[in-house]
C-alpha cells in the first residue's frame, strides 16, 4: 500500500482546526467573563503572541520537508519511493 506523506500533514491540519476552535473558546471566555482590566488583555495578548510563535516555528521546520514523498507499506516493512 502506498500513500503520500502529506496525509500526516492533513491530519495535523485537522487537529490545528480543533486547536483553533479551543483557542477561540478560551479568548471568548476571557473577553466575556474576565474582569475589565489590563490583566485580561495582557493575558490574551500573551496567549496569541506565544501561539503565533509556536505556529511560526512549526512552519519553519515543516516547510523544509518534502511532503510529496510516497510511503509504501508491505506488511510491517516501510519503504520510501521518490
Amino acid at each position: 500500500m502506498t500513500f503520500p506523506l502529506y496525509i500526516f500533514l492533513i491530519i495535523y491540519f485537522i487537529f490545528l482546526l480543533i486547536w483553533l476552535i479551543f483557542s477561540f473558546i478560551g479568548v471568548y471566555h476571557m473577553l466575556k467573563f474576565g474582569f475589565l482590566n489590563l490583566t485580561t488583555f495582557f493575558v490574551i495578548f500573551i496567549f496569541i503572541a506565544v501561539s503565533f510563535l509556536i505556529l511560526i516555528a512549526s512552519y519553519k521546520y515543516l516547510s523544509q520537508i518534502d511532503w510529496r514523498m510516497n510511503i509504501s507499506i508491505f506488511g510491517d516493512i516501510i519503504k520510501i519511493n521518490f
Binding site: 490545528l16 479551543f22 474576565g34 496567549f47 509556536i54 512549526s58 511532503w67
Partner: peptide, 28 residues
Amino acid sequence: YPLFILLVSFFYLFLWVFFFFSFIDYYL
C-alpha cells in the same frame, strides 16, 4: 523526522491552549 516535528508542534500547541484553559479556570 516529519512525524516527530508534527507531534512536537501538536504537543506544544495543545499544551499551550490547555495551560490557557487552566489559567482561565483560576482567573475566572
